[in-house]
Design a protein around this nucleic acid. Structure first.
Lengths: 343, 343
DNA sequence: TTGTAGGCGTTATCAC
DNA sequence: GTGATAACGCCTACAA
């Protein structure tokens, strides 16, 4: 009767003179349908402005039209960047974004996520780094039958469940840039243990030094925790060395900002007294003084690709990008790198 | 039979030896229920690990267990801050957070939101500034029968639909701080027209100067667009004056960062040559050099309070904070303010 | 205080 | 190809 409220599938069926099921078939693009019937029903749908009720579909299908974002990333800019990419990928679809932060170290983390997945039954979830590296979490998703895609700094899973960047290679480019500028004493502020991104960036760093035939004492790599404060501490360590570095590569921008802070605090100028390269390019980098040369992590593009994979089965034609999973990070040149001061 | 899958309300009813409706009453905390019955049913629920299916409830109640965040705020840090506050307010409830960015200037913005609200039927939405100031949007929410709370820099609506900060007053404190340090030539980089936050901060600035009996030429207020770049431009304008200011208050941190950038570019040191105060304290401020003295906007607290208001009716006891709607911004002292250089 | 019948709007089953 | 009929799991009448 639709006297009040939106038209339902029943209204459409009645007016089009067909059964509910036929309307349902039109909505769901069933292939076995007479073209005329389809056209007629589609007309009625358009005329009435009928929109299927997501709640009813969710109940019947036992699956919601929601895409979840599961993350434990401490960097706000990174998180929002990914979120924006997801929203772009979801634009003009029937899907909505639902955000679910988790506590990486909580013993109930897996239980929390399981409850979330079983209750909300999202259509799929995107796992952000670093929690994406958690095998148990991926297994849980498979277990409850929830689609997932993992984001990482290298492939973590099957291609249709992976989107990744090539961190190692690009760090190589960054180091090569420093070498070209004449730096030999190049230090690194590494990320924390147990993070794939940290390991990949470290590997790229080591490989690049080896390629440039540079051998440095082991204390030229200081470990940080991906935080501003840990960047200060690590940089202090490095700059206190008898033979301090002339350039520092930090495994993320927060730590690079910390290094900048540490340098200024002891009266050093960047890039005159110390060159600096960060990683992420999450907004902070461009707003520091001097603007930070850094590697741009393609989180937005990765996220967009990731959600497209998650909802690929709802499209008629498969996306040409379906089997690709890699986006290149790239070196962004700003003003924190210069040749080392002649001594 | 629940052989597979989770137990349903039917299973609980059968095992507890009551009707579905009685179980439903227990779930929904109906007051007219025998204590014994309730206890018995609650035991069975606990034993079976029964959790009501949100999709079914959504269909029956015509309302989802989702809290929406509607925003068009350009500042990533601010957005994430609010998001975190919302998640804290939602923690351990049955509600989930759903994110909905909108395009402020798009002519279809209202249609987009209407479609979103009518389709997803969220339990309620939090409107972030600046879109929260849009009267048509609030009216739309009322129209489709969706709860909402507006965040602002001053009260925008009825108390149960408002959470706000006292920007004006705190800006007064910030200016007073500069005056105490001996500054007389105090400029402002104001926010863009049409933003309540910009207007409030500007009012606070003017009032504070008046109170200190300081009269300044009108070009001591430069208008910015809340962006880093606009901060640079505005600061350049101010610093090019014949009698440039010795201190600048910027209506947000992004513009303050831009001002810092502009100052450094012309070889000025902060705070020695120029004192600087920002507004927001969204992470950027503490990581700049020098760490920025700024006003902390209590977005996280406001958001937390906001969602509690949205879901207040699902609790037994009303929150004691129910009728409060104000959180105080506060001045955070860091290192970007010093007495003016003697001339 | 509790139970029965029916509905929320969609999809699945299985005939025709 | 198409259409009755029964789920999906919960809630709101209304009755008892």
């Amino acid at each position: 009767m639709m006297a009040s409220g939106k038209p339902t599938i029943n209204d459409v069926a009645r007016i089009a003179g067909v059964s509910k099921k036929t309307v349902s078939r039109v909505i769901n693009r069933s292939p076995l349908l007479h073209v005329d019937t389809r056209a007629r029903v589609e007309n009625v749908i358009a005329e009435m402005g009928f929109v299927p009720n997501p709640q009813a579909r969710a109940l019947a299908l036992r699956r919601n039209f929601l895409i979840g974002m599961i993350h434990d990333n401490p960097n706000a800019q990174t998180v929002l960047n990914v979120q924006q990419g997801m929203l772009e990928g979801l634009r003009d679809t029937e899907f909505e974004l639902i955000v679910r932060p988790v506590k990486r170290h909580s013993p109930q983390m897996l239980d929390d996520v399981r409850r979330f997945l079983e209750r909300q039954r999202p259509h799929g979830v995107l796992l952000m780094p670093p929690i994406a590296e958690n095998e148990a979490l991926a297994e849980l998703c498979r277990d409850v039958g929830c689609r997932y895609v993992r984001m990482g700094s290298a492939a973590l899973d099957a291609p249709d469940r992976t989107v990744a960047s090539n961190d190692g290679e690009v760090v190589g480019l960054a180091v090569a840039h420093l070498v070209e500028q004449g730096h030999r004493r190049i230090a690194m502020i590494a990320g924390p243990d147990g993070f794939l991104s940290a390991a990949e960036r470290r590997k790229g760093f080591d490989a690049a030094l080896a390629k440039a035939r540079i051998t440095l004492p082991s204390d030229f790599v200081a470990k940080g925790g991906y935080t501003f404060e840990s960047g200060i501490a690590a940089a202090d360590l490095l700059l206190d060395l008898d033979q301090p570095p002339t350039a520092i590569f930090a495994a993320n921008d927060e730590m690079a900002a910390g290094a900048l802070h540490a340098a200024r605090r002891r009266g050093m100028n960047v890039p005159e007294d110390l060159s600096l390269i960060g990683f992420d390019d999450t907004g902070l980098a461009a707003h520091l003084w001097p603007p930070l040369t850094t590697v741009r992590w393609p989180g937005l593009m990765l996220a967009r690709l990731g959600v497209r994979k998650l909802i690929a089965d709802t499209f008629d034609e498969s996306d040409p990008d379906d089997d690709s999973w890699l986006y290149e990070s790239q070196l962004i040149h700003r003003d924190s790198v210069a040749p080392p001061r002649a001594r």
